Simulated assay, not measured.
Amino acid sequence: MMQHRHFKLFKPYGYLSQFITNAKHERNKKFLGELYDFPEGTMAIGRLDKDSEGLLLLTTDGKISAEITSNKTEKEYYVQVDGDISETALSDLTKGVTLSYNGTFYTTQPCQVFKLETTPNFPPRIKKIRDERHGKTSWISITITEGKFRQVRKMTAKVGFPTLRLVRVRVGSIHLYPLKMGEVLKIDL
């Protein structure tokens, strides 16, 4: 019987959540295989888009992947948004907002949202985010169980506070820390 292996990775900004591509427009992109020599058959559990950072779980076990990507597992994100987010916007996010996905409208499930009192201590991003001269920003925590395409970014934009930086900090009981940017650790799932 095959011994499955599991990993957690601090995915840096600019990397795609895949190992290779056949698409011509992605040939000059950065892939996960550049960060670590993963065993054959390793897959990302869920995805983080190129512009997102943070905790990415990887496994050689498809059953574990399906279980974690189900709508039962919490995913927590720290999100830097444009502006000083209002209590109304936080309340709207908590209750759920109506978004469009492939031309179909849906309302996000209620979720946990709160404003962070202190700025998270993340490494500087490779591509600089605008600075305070361009107006205030704020950091919030959003914990969801669903995960449609670019959902968190769409949610914050819908309430008038577009996402500037998005970092996944937790999946279920697995936390990003103490990983450093680009670091991979073997874990038990």
Score class of each variant (00 low, 15 high):
F7Q: 08
Q3Y: 03
S91F: 05
V113H: 07
T42H: 05
K154W: 06
F38G: 03
Y15M: 08
E146M: 13
R5K: 11
L16H: 03
L185A: 03
G135R: 01
Y77V: 04
T88G: 05
Y177E: 11
P124W: 07
K158C: 12
T60D: 00
K180Q: 00
P162S: 04
T118S: 06
N28Q: 09
N102P: 06
I20C: 08
P124M: 13
R47C: 14
R130F: 04
T98C: 10
W139H: 06
D84C: 00
E183P: 10
D37K: 07
M43I: 15
R130D: 11
D51P: 05
L9W: 01
L58Y: 03
L90M: 12
G83A: 02
R125I: 03
V184L: 01
F122K: 04
H134C: 02
M1P: 15
Y78K: 08
E132Y: 09
L99V: 15
H4I: 05
G54T: 04
N71K: 13
Q80H: 09
K115P: 13
V81R: 08
D61V: 08
I187Y: 11
Q112E: 15
L9P: 07
A23G: 03
L176G: 11
S52E: 12
V79R: 14
V79I: 15
F19N: 00
P123T: 14
T107H: 07
D188I: 13
E76D: 01
I20T: 12
T42M: 09
L179D: 02
L55K: 10
L48H: 08
K154R: 09
Y177G: 10
L57Q: 03
R168N: 11
T119C: 07
G41Y: 09
K75L: 06
K128R: 09
I140F: 14
G182V: 05
I129W: 12
T143M: 13
N28V: 02
G14F: 02
L55F: 12
E40P: 14
K95T: 02
I174M: 05
T21A: 06
N22W: 01
F31E: 14
I140W: 14
G62W: 03
V159Q: 02
L116G: 06
D92P: 10
E40N: 07
T88D: 07
F122T: 00
A66L: 13
T119N: 12
E40H: 08
L35S: 02
F10L: 00
R47F: 12
N121V: 14
F10H: 01
N71D: 10
T42E: 04
G96M: 10
K180Y: 01
G103P: 15
Y177S: 12
K75N: 02
K127N: 09
F149S: 07
E53L: 10
K50I: 09
T98F: 11
I140A: 05
M43L: 13
I45W: 02
M1E: 15
E40D: 07
K127E: 15
G62V: 10
P162T: 03
T118A: 04
R27C: 08
T21V: 03
H4L: 08
H6C: 11
K30Y: 00
V79Q: 15
K63I: 12
E76H: 05
L164M: 14
E34H: 07
K63N: 13
